[in-house]
Amino acid sequence: MTDPHAIVIGGGQAGLATTHALLTRGLRTVLLEAGAEPVGSWPRYYDNLTLFSPARYSSLPGLPFPGDPDRYPHRDEVVGYLRRYAARLDADIRTHHRVTTVARDGDGFTVRTDSGDTVAAPAVIAATGGFSRPHRPALPGLDRFTGTVLHSADYRTPEPFTGQRVIVVGAGNSAVQIAAELAAHATVTLATRAPVRFEPQRPFGRDVHFWSAAVGFDHLPIGHLLRSKPASPVLDAGAYRAAIAAGRTGQRRMFTHIEGSTVRWPDGSTDEADTIILATGFRPDVSYLDSLGALRDRVPLHTRGVSTTVPGLGCVGLEWQRSFASATLRGVGRDAAYVVTRLATTTSPVRRRCCQPVG
């Protein structure tokens, strides 16, 4: 392959959608993926993870999700879908290539991997997404807890927690799903800073994603207007709310103190706990951009995915990058197309070369 027009970092859903958008414009592309295959973080999620969006709203550009379009796919189905998607791309996909640094090189960039390999191109798109670095907040007394603390990224199945007293921290979909699953095996308390906000999965008999698409909410480019990410509601067909109402999953405000295995709640009562699971979300892992001046507080400085400080640099897959759906399977394709179009029309080396035939 001759020199690429663009380098994509990260081979998950964001990187694959971005590669598709680049190839569609006739731009030669190298995709660098740290793992063994271009499927992102999906194989590492908990075993029973089920999408909250139906298959018809869980596709990347150019390849519909197979099967019943109204079903809710499981984790392994998503992994299989991403494998097929990557195999259909006519791109130079290099696995086991973890990017360590991206440096300016004249009008373009030089990307270096942990193996010492380098790749140069006039444009770079960071697509390691917003879910590559588990967020572990500084909760009161957590450092004094003598039990086990783990992030939801390390949770797989409920059986190892059988008979334990478990606190799940978080109020999002993953927190509630994990807590409900654990309730059949352990004594579970859901600890939240604010009440869990439930929304029906299928209002008026249609999935909420149908209504979101129908009114155009997914397409609204409003993410850049928000100073902080709004708390997402928990989509529920009724089982999760019922589990909490029936007491199978307790719900308390965030604990105020921990000493040993004793957890103190805001009302002064205490409980003993064996394990605390932090379902507290993720943050972007784009430390390889440090030397470019492209980050603030470890997060890219951008407008709708286009760097505001480094010409020729973009990102795809960040939460609220452009819209409500930006970090999802159904949303990364639109964001990728926007970023690629912007870079192709504003980055002079790419403009000069984008009309050359693909080698």
Rank of each mutant, 00 (worst) to 15 (best):
Y288C: 04
I244F: 10
T347D: 08
A194I: 05
D154N: 11
G163M: 13
V350C: 07
A245Q: 08
R28V: 09
A127Q: 13
G62Q: 07
R298H: 11
V124D: 10
L23C: 06
E33H: 06
P134D: 02
A21G: 05
G238C: 07
V99T: 01
T347A: 08
V306C: 13
P137Y: 03
P284L: 04
R352V: 11
A336P: 13
A279R: 04
Q321H: 08
E272V: 01
G305E: 14
I276C: 05
T249V: 11
T346A: 12
P221D: 02
F131P: 02
V358T: 12
G281E: 00
H135W: 06
T110E: 01
P140N: 09
L313H: 15
F282P: 05
V111F: 00
R156M: 09
A337G: 11
G205D: 10
R227E: 13
A191N: 07
R264G: 12
P64C: 01
F198I: 04
L313S: 15
A123S: 06
T110W: 03
L295M: 10
D143R: 00
F198E: 00
E181Y: 02
I125S: 03
D285P: 04
H302V: 06
V124E: 05
A337C: 07
F324S: 09
G250Q: 05
A337V: 03
A344R: 05
L313V: 15
P300N: 07
G333K: 05
A87D: 14
S287D: 13
I277K: 00
L292Q: 00
R322C: 14
